[in-house]
């Protein structure tokens, strides 16, 4: 990391610190510690998250748009096969879980799946590789996995939440949506008892509604954060290297094998998390489109 020796906890803290910057008195300044970042308040930007997620999203869209421009009904070849396979897979998932008629859902699912997959995929890069590159450009902190930043995951889940609310109102109407929130799950034929049930229902269904974006964002964030943390812990094993002793060689070897094993296992996790986020989005939007719950 730096020339002076650092402790394990410093190494971990350093890796969990975003490159948080804001504009203060006309010039950009970036936080050097978690405390400084906290002090910047809300109007600060995690530049690393923003830049990495933008690069990955642009990469995805450029690749797919390149194919889409040349897409024809003729015989597909090369990258077009791959892109069509992905599109077909997403289309199948949407057809399987989404019963309404909305052409927005499938491209939304595609964007979510590929973008999240690419953001998660950054976890498989050697943990210090990209931060070192950033450091050589003068950025002290650089988190390469945007999905370990709750800002990124909540940013996506809020958009999904907005769409859920929008389509709930659109297909059920304001009254229908309000009825869904207040008349269920407890129902009674007696109007007085029903009136008593309304606040209970509102609390239950309200929690249910709010839980959707929160669980979407936190599930992805938690999984990726924990995975990243294990990569960091594995990376510490070899960092105490001080000459050829049996202990040092064992630790160093363990680091190599553990990080390899965890990375292989992580391939499953990153794909699964992208898929779960996509599938739950489709399911939530499907529920929003259903007129009778």
């Amino acid at each position: 990391m730096t020339t002076e020796t650092i402790t394990s906890s410093e190494y971990i803290k350093h890796h969990l610190q975003n490159l948080t910057c804001n504009i203060n008195a006309g010039h950009v300044q970036c936080a050097h510690s978690a405390e400084e970042a906290k002090k910047m308040g809300f109007w600060a930007l995690n530049v690393d998250t923003f830049v990495m997620s933008f690069i990955l999203g642009a990469l995805f869209l450029m690749l797919f748009h390149g194919v889409a421009k040349r897409a024809s009904s003729g015989i597909p070849a090369g990258i077009q096969n791959f892109v069509e396979w992905v599109v077909d897979f997403i289309d199948g998932s949407v057809r399987g879980s989404f019963s309404g008629k909305n052409t927005l859902v499938a491209p939304l699912a595609l964007t979510i799946f590929v973008w999240i997959f690419l953001m998660n995929f950054m976890d498989l890069f050697p943990i210090d590789f990209l931060p070192k590159v950033a450091e050589s450009f003068g950025f002290g902190h650089f988190k390469v996995v945007p999905s370990t930043d709750p800002n990124a995951t909540f940013g996506m889940s809020f958009v999904v939440f907005f769409l859920v609310i929008y389509y709930s109102l659109k297909s059920k109407g304001l009254g229908g949506f309000a009825a869904e929130l207040s008349m269920m799950p407890f129902q009674s034929k007696n109007p007085i008892i029903q009136a008593l049930f309304v606040p209970i229902n509102l609390i239950l269904e309200g929690v249910n509604l709010i839980a959707k974006p929160v669980s979407l964002a936190l599930r992805l964030f938690g999984n990726m954060y924990a995975g990243e943390m294990i990569f960091i812990l594995i990376a510490i094993m070899g960092s105490t290297w001080a000459g050829f002793t049996v202990a040092n060689i064992t630790l160093f070897g363990s680091q190599i094998f553990l990080s390899l094993g965890w990375a292989i296992f992580h391939i499953l996790i990153i794909t699964l998390q992208a898929f779960i986020f996509m599938t739950l989005t489709i399911v939530y939007l499907d529920m929003a489109h259903q007129e009778h719950h």
Binding site: W43, D91, N151, F158
Partner: peptide, 30 residues
């Protein structure tokens, strides 16, 4: 790990990516 304006930036970025994906990726391919 603070919640800050990145949240808004990411949401807008996501919305833009989604719009681009729908208009220039999904529709022609499908």
């Amino acid at each position: 790990m603070n919640i800050n304006a990145t949240l808004i930036a990411q949401a807008i970025m996501f919305a833009l990516f989604f719009w681009f994906c729908k208009s220039f990726v999904w529709t022609p391919i499908i």
